[in-house]
Amino acid sequence: MKSSDDGGLDGLGIGALAARFGLAAHVLRHWEAMGLLHPGRDAGGRRRYGADDLTRVATILLLKEAGLGLNTIRSLTTGADRATRHAILGPAAEELRSTIAAARASLELIEGGLNCDFEDVTQCPNYRRLITERVGTTQ
């Protein structure tokens, strides 16, 4: 499936598209080989990217930034129905929730150390509470 809407653009070459998104041209070629991009070709066989392709690259980048791999992105962007989308994104969302919870706990520990008036951080109330919770006994 080639890009049909060039939004009035003559079409960007691979170098121009790559530069627009701060990518190396080989990244776009790799995405094409994986079936993520389907650029049109000019009379000389050179890739030409239109408005739909720009949207597609932006979509790929957003999904990558969300932590999804290229195979997952391909599954999501090739007409996945609602059930498939939920099956793919559900575990990814749960993994992200776990990562966020771990980051919050780390931040709480670090901020507790920053806000503690004791010389020895192990004497700080926040630190002692977290250790007690980890050990599972009361001191």
Rank of each mutant, 00 (worst) to 15 (best):
A80L: 00
L89D: 05
I88R: 06
R29P: 10
G90A: 08
E119C: 13
N126S: 15
R29K: 13
R20M: 11
R82F: 08
R97A: 13
P39I: 04
S4T: 15
T72F: 08
A103F: 09
A51D: 04
A101F: 08
T138D: 15
D10T: 12
R128N: 05
G79H: 10
G45V: 10
I60S: 00
G22V: 12
L17V: 05
A51N: 07
H30K: 03
L130C: 02
A66L: 14
Y49H: 06
M34Q: 15
M34P: 12
L130H: 05
L114Y: 12
L109G: 02
G8F: 14
L61H: 01
H86F: 08
P91T: 09
Q139A: 13
G15Q: 05
S98V: 06
I88E: 08
I14D: 03
D42T: 12
A24C: 08
K2Y: 14
G45L: 04
R104M: 09
T138I: 15
T72G: 06
D6T: 15
G113I: 04
G15F: 12
T59V: 06
G112T: 02
G22I: 08
Q139Y: 13
R41P: 11
K64F: 06
R56N: 03
A105I: 10
L62M: 15
R20P: 05
S4W: 09
R48F: 00
E133H: 01
P39K: 01
R97E: 11
V27Y: 03
A43R: 07
R20W: 07
R56C: 02
E133K: 01
D53N: 03
H38G: 05
K64D: 06
